[in-house]
Design a binder for these strands. Structure first.
Length: 572
DNA sequence: GCCGTTTTCGGCCCGACTGTTTTCAGTCG
């Protein structure tokens, strides 16, 4: 069994091992290839079958060859060889905070230390004393990293929906307590990646010291790891690391670009700048010593001849070329959403709850709601909305809000208990088993279907394919957003590539701090979805879920495909 | 190892911070 994720893992491991062997540029080359492979929307095998491995950014002759080996045999001889050269414990050492490849390598070469246990011994025996570059503090730092496994997680990403309320809380705390002008959470959080490793918060303020004081005093903050003049790093109580940076107003835009990333996007921006005789860093865009942009992101991109690029697209997947050509897609905006076809109410919903839902929908200028009137309860039984609730929903007063009745069912026959429930639309909630050949064929009838497919099913590109086929046959849209039952952004991109429309949940009627709607929109942006490709961006009278127009090509490098050099088959 | 529409060789992002340093190396993001 091979997979993109596993291949990416292997290349990351190769990079670590090369680091430990003291290689200079190869590790970064392997990491870049790993990042590209990981963000691929297509199975590596399929790319290889077309002979297009080398169109993947960062994949050249040598790595393409290794991918072929991996696909054929499930392993890479070069990797196996490296593993024999480097003791496995060294990789563990390198993952400890404060120890990088150079330091781990020195322990290995100079002290014969091959892992955490041996390093602990070496420290206890005083073998680090007198070693050049190792003073008391450094040794103590390493000792505590070795003794404290909780200090180890350099990695450990968590789902964005989990981090969302934390980020909001921190921003609110800063706004309330300190004299801050602009505040923005950057990093992969801003790009709305499915998982977030840490938070990067940028602020402008006339009083940085006060900002740090306020921040340190926030209840969520457990420990200050580092504090300088412009930057503070803290650990929250749950272990999440947060970097706070105070920047000057004239630098805010360039800092935001820089810290929003992605890394590959930034690298490409800089090389584009170099071509134009410009230099980009977090302080601005410079021609010589003259700042030509920096205060806003728009200025920064404009100074490079680019349209502003939405954060969710900044992954070096051709967005920079598109921005240069003025061909960026117009992404679906919150104001494009005209309804929400997937709203749940408990069967015994109190009147206030129903009224609040309707009021919230109006406040958001939604034109219609699809309320689930019947469906499966968590205990496996079925439930239907109470008569009271239905009547209350059915009398939206003078508002023009239109209501649809939605039935939520699995694939196949409608259960007898629900057969008599009147409905306008259906939501299909597939079981986690792969759909069979005849799955869903009975689910015809009312015009509009939304599949509620688990991303646990679809996280692997190949597992999604049969679902997309079913969705195509039935003409359903697919719901995108956070949580195990919706498509993540990569699955959403594939759905769009197979001409499916998306449904975006809005969180209407839910708690005000519910991030579902914002994250769903972010995922849709990562998939480069336009309003035309979102079913609930259509007016109530024109709801149709069929194909979203002409097929879109898979994303990739847009700047021409490089031809493989003939006759230069050099090994790594 | 990758990359390039001025390059097939010679670059490879770059700055803050820390600790150990009389000028810098390593880590981190």
């Amino acid at each position: 069994m091979t997979s993109n994720a596993e291949a990416a893992e292997i290349f990351l491991s190769i990079a670590d091992l090369l680091d430990l062997l003291g290689e200079k540029f190869k590790p970064e080359a392997y990491r870049r290839a790993a990042r590209s492979i990981e963000s691929l929307t297509e199975d590596l095998g399929a790319v290889a079958a077309r002979g297009e491995l080398r169109t993947i950014p960062g994949v050249g002759e040598a790595i393409a060859e290794k991918i072929e080996e991996y696909l054929k045999t499930g392993t890479i001889p070069y990797y196996e060889r490296l593993k024999h050269e480097v003791p496995p414990g060294l990789v563990e050492l390198m993952r400890l905070p404060g120890i990088g490849p150079k330091t781990a390598r020195r322990f290995w070469v100079e002290l014969g230390v091959e892992g955490p246990g041996e390093l602990r011994d070496a420290i206890a025996k005083g073998r680090l004393n007198g070693l050049k570059g190792f003073g008391e503090k450094k040794i103590e730092q390493i000792r505590s990293a070795l003794g404290d496994p909780a200090a180890a997680p350099k990695g450990g990403r968590r789902p964005i929906e989990e981090v969302y309320p934390i980020a909001r809380g921190l921003v609110a705390g800063l706004r309330k307590g300190a004299d801050v002008e602009q505040v923005e959470v950057a990093g992969s959080f801003r790009r709305c990646r499915e998982t977030v490793g840490d938070l990067d918060i940028l602020v402008t303020s006339k009083d940085p010291a006060r900002v740090f004081d306020v921040f340190t005093g926030l209840p969520l903050v457990a420990e200050v790891k580092m504090r300088g003049g412009t930057k503070e790093t803290v650990l929250l109580q749950d272990g999440l690391q947060v970097d706070l940076r105070v920047v000057k107003p004239e630098e805010f835009g360039s800092a935001l670009v820089y810290f929003t990333g992605s890394k590959d996007h930034n690298i490409r921006l800089r090389s584009l700048a170099q071509d134009q005789g410009l230099k980009v860093n977090e302080y601005g865009v410079f021609r010589g010593d003259v700042r030509v942009a920096g205060a806003t992101e728009k200025d920064v991109y404009a100074s490079l001849g680019l349209a502003w690029i939405p954060p969710e697209l900044r992954e070096d997947r051709g967005e920079i070329d598109r921005a240069a050509q003025g061909k960026l897609p117009v992404l679906v905006a919150p104001t494009d959403l005209r309804g929400d076809l997937h709203v749940h109410l408990p069967p015994d919903a109190r009147a206030e709850l129903v009224d609040r839902l309707v009021a919230d929908a109006r406040a958001r200028h939604l034109e219609y709601l699809g309320v689930v009137v019947a469906g499966p309860a968590p205990d496996g039984t079925t439930w239907t909305l109470s008569k009271d609730t239905r009547e209350r929903l059915g009398t939206p007063g003078r508002s023009s809000l239109r209501l649809f009745r939605v039935l939520e069912v699995g694939f196949g026959e409608i259960p007898p208990a629900l057969a008599s429930v009147e409905h306008d639309y259906r939501i299909l909630r597939p079981t986690l088993a792969a759909p069979g050949p005849s799955a869903g064929t009975k689910a015809t009838g009312p015009s509009l279907l939304i599949a509620h497919v688990g991303s646990s099913v679809v996280s692997d590109g190949r597992a999604l394919a049969p679902w997309l086929e079913v969705a195509r046959t039935l003409g359903t849209a697919l719901e995108v957003g956070p949580g195990a039952e919706r498509l993540d952004s990569s699955a959403a991109r594939q759905a769009l590539e197979s001409q499916r429309r998306l449904h975006l949940p809005t969180g209407v009627g839910g708690p005000t701090d519910d991030p579902t709607g914002a994250i769903a929109l972010g995922f849709a942006h990562r998939a480069a979805a336009t309003a035309h490709e979102v079913v609930n961006a259509r007016p109530a009278g024109e709801l149709s879920i069929g194909a979203a127009g002409p097929p879109r090509p898979p994303e990739g490098r847009s700047h021409g495909r490089r031809k493989a050099r003939p006759g230069t088959t050099r090994a790594a």
